[in-house]
């Protein structure tokens, strides 16, 4: 039997600055040498994978969410809208209904429940999705507009776009936002495996634990990549052993990798040990996820 479903790999971390982008971009570029690969930057509040991906920008599309607009002439000031809005994005101040689009989750409750249709929904630009192509690597960047607070709707739209237009990419890698809140939960949705990139420090361990707990709740298989190995202590390794979490690779704390990274280069091309670590990570995932 041939499995046509793409392999979806999420790269997440808990703590910020552990090396998600480094792992995502290098893993995707390396893997693209043996077949078409999709890399998606879902760190919508500060996407930066594009710095490492060469190639032409082929397309930019505006992304919209639906928000209500108050129609003063229809409104009877009944107050239902402000009562049903769980996010306090619609409030009634006397004879004025204020709509705060940054707070709106686009749930339609106010609009649908308004008895006189005084809150029709309108599209509102929340971000962009850009596309770059570099040989076998296709790259999508999802970027939120400055000042926007809601990352989740844009992340969902990006996943939907991938499912609709990029299903023929057999390997899809998603660079996720840091943390363990709603944007991360949205970003790892429907992925088959989550790589958690951490560092061997108390901060790294603390946030790794939170990330592991989150992914367990979501039922996601995880593996840990210890970046900057050699600094700090071995508490992360002890934790992974106790919790029976596979350590997929240890990437050494290396000046050479840091310099290549800060120049916007893909470090695996120059650092052989990084290339073999990434191969190891990819083979593990392929063997674990695909029966």
């Amino acid at each position: 039997m041939i499995d046509h479903r793409p392999l979806k790999i999420a790269v997440a971390s808990g703590k910020g600055g552990t090396g998600k982008t480094m792992v995502s971009t290098n893993l995707a570029a390396l893997r693209s040498q043996s077949g078409s690969t999709l890399l998606v930057d879902l760190d919508v509040e500060e996407p930066n994978d594009f710095l490492f991906i060469p190639g032409e920008l082929v397309h930019v599309s505006d992304q919209f969410k639906m928000i209500p607009d108050w129609d003063q002439n229809r409104c009877t000031l009944c107050g239902i809208c402000s009562k049903v809005c769980k996010y306090h994005a619609v409030i009634q101040l006397g004879t004025y209904i204020a709509v705060f689009k940054e707070l709106c989750h686009g749930c339609y409750a106010c609009s649908e429940l308004c008895p006189v249709e005084a809150l029709p929904m309108h599209p509102y630009k929340m971000g962009t999705i850009s596309k770059k192509i570099s040989q076998n690597l296709t790259f999508l960047e999802s970027r939120l507009e400055i000042g926007e607070e809601q990352a989740v709707p844009l992340i969902h739209q990006t996943h939907n776009l991938v499912d609709k237009n990029y299903a023929d990419f057999k390997v899809q890698i998603f660079d996720c936002p840091p943390g363990t809140s709603c944007p991360v939960v949205a970003a790892v949705k429907d992925t088959d495996f989550v790589i958690l990139v951490t560092e061997p420090t108390p901060f790294g361990l603390n946030d790794l634990k939170l990330a592991v707990e989150t992914m367990r709740k979501l039922g996601k298989p995880v593996g840990v990549v210890i970046n900057r190995h050699g600094i700090g202590n071995d508490d992360v390794e002890v934790y992974c052993r106790q919790q029976q979490i596979p350590v997929l690779a240890k990437i050494p704390f290396s000046r050479q990798i840091a310099e290549l990274y800060s120049n916007g280069s893909l470090a695996y091309q120059e650092v052989g040990s990084l290339e073999s670590s990434l191969q190891q990570i990819f083979s593990y995932i392929q063997n674990t996820v695909k029966p």
């Binding site: 996010y87 306090h88 101040l93 705060f100 707070l103």
Partner: peptide, 15 residues
């Protein structure tokens, strides 16, 4: 319990 919108909720209450 509100992650967002505390400001507008309180503004309405004070109003």
């Amino acid at each position: 319990n509100d992650a967002h919108g505390a400001g507008t909720a309180t503004a309405q209450k004070i109003f």
